[in-house]
Design a protein around this nucleic acid. Structure first.
Lengths: 128, 128
DNA sequence: CTGGATCCGCGCGGATACTG
DNA sequence: CAGTATCCGCGCGGATCCAG
């Protein structure tokens, strides 16, 4: 990602518009207010539905199930049902899901490292 | 971002919930359907309002101006007005904005490289 | 315990008209 | 040219109720 050669570190124009929209859709998919929190919690290991809900806290059951369904649909999460009584459902990250965490954390690290700069910029702007 | 030591490449639990929500907010900010497209276009160099609009094509002027205002507020973009007649307004990325492109492209690259895996997973899920 | 079904308020984003 | 103002439809997400 970082430049290995001597060129400027300004990212050049790499992808066409169609690809860029594809990326936008992907970003929209992961930034729907809950996905990151869910994926991060699943990163700690397989969890059952209500444990997951308790861990996250603020999420409604509707949003949790729909978020998990999306993640499953995209191949980031597996859903394994044990048909006991009461039923038991465990969610876990797939290899793809764990792999996905790398670029996401790359972005997360950037946000953490630069939040001061952003806050400062926001303060400057607010003082206009 | 990639592990330099010998540990597993599975991302560990690094941030607390507050930080994670901060990141989610940041992600929401950049994935609002237009931000990536705008930032990417600005990455090619300073552009004036209507040129930007023409370049992107599908965006409405309301969304373009509000997207630009958000980017300016967060310190990713500068807005320079030349009070001629007719007026002239140029938008350009700041250092922070260009720097931000790095993790974004990191994620973009991942999406490009793994879109086949995702599409395949979606196909498998659709066949359920 | 694990959700689906339904209702509803709110905000995003598009369309249109107008201004300096 | 570079926007602001207004209206409006639609979908996200919360709350609640119900089912296997």
């Amino acid at each position: 990602m970082a430049p290995q050669d001597g060129t400027r570190r300004v990212p050049r124009h790499r992808e066409d518009t169609a690809t860029c929209e594809h990326i936008s859709r992907m970003l929209a998919r992961i930034s729907d207010k809950w996905t990151i929190l869910v994926v991060r919690t699943l990163g700690k290991g397989p969890v059952r539905f209500n444990a997951l809900k308790r861990e996250i806290g603020a999420i409604s059951q509707k949003m949790l199930s729909s978020t998990l369904r999306d993640l499953e649909e995209n191949g980031f999460v597996t859903r394994t049902v044990t048909p006991t009584i009461p039923p038991q459902v465990e969610y876990a990250l797939t290899d793809l899901g764990r792999d996905f965490l790398n670029p996401v954390y790359g972005l997360a690290d950037w946000v953490v490292k630069n939040s001061a700069r952003i806050e400062k910029a926001r303060a400057v702007f607010a003082a206009k």
